[in-house]
Design a protein around this nucleic acid. Sequence first.
DNA 1: AGACTATATGGCTATATTGCCAAATAAGCA
DNA 2: TGCTTATTTGGCAATATAGCCATATAGTCT
Lengths: 110, 110
Amino acid sequence: MEERFRELYESRAKIIKALAHPTRLFIIEELQKHERSVGELTAMIRADTSTVSKHLSVLKNAGIVADEKRGTSIYYQLRTPCIMNFIGCIEEVLELNAKAQMDILKCCRK
Amino acid sequence: MEERFRELYESRAKIIKALAHPTRLFIIEELQKHERSVGELTAMIRADTSTVSKHLSVLKNAGIVADEKRGTSIYYQLRTPCIMNFIGCIEEVLELNAKAQMDILKCCRK
DNA sequence: AGACTATATGGCTATATTGCCAAATAAGCA
DNA sequence: TGCTTATTTGGCAATATAGCCATATAGTCT
């Protein structure tokens, strides 16, 4: 693997890592419907504000969401909705896994 | 966020986490072209065999790749090629980020 | 200015991940 | 059987991440 390739994969991995957390996946799915303020998200997630804020800043640093101050709150929105497509693929993996698990159960029971 | 939702996001995050590493992204891209043995991949990546083997087992546990022993080697293949689509979206994020960076540079220079 | 609200940051501990080495396993072959 | 090759596993040190608390910042309102 050549060096410049390694860098490309590194950049991609950084973005993907930003997606790789349950809370952040929730946030992304929520933002796809609506833009949301930190407070609104915090209420839905039921965690410390600071925790939610940190998750948002991870997403923002990765360039996945953008924020906009309006009135007294800061609203976050999804910057690249294509992110959602990819959830579909993850779901496909999960289904395959579940199916494989079923097969194991079926085959070894009479 | 209700409990059962949390579990769904948890499952998704596990899969995504398995993708979130440069070496594993390389492996996935490589497997999309070809199935490959551990040895072949190790040669391309130039890391310890044990390291590559562990990366492969992460991908396998997530259900992203499957392995098949044939002859003296174990060949790994991509189980859900849709994984590749999602790389396209990651690329889109990277491009947006780069563009934003350019804008910053342009705007603040005379 | 002072008080209040919304959000972000620093600091900390607990936990997870990475990558190497050494050792274990598994299979094929002399 | 013993040797060799291919791959996996265990152990360990270095590093990164998560989440909470306390604190800081920024803006609004009186």
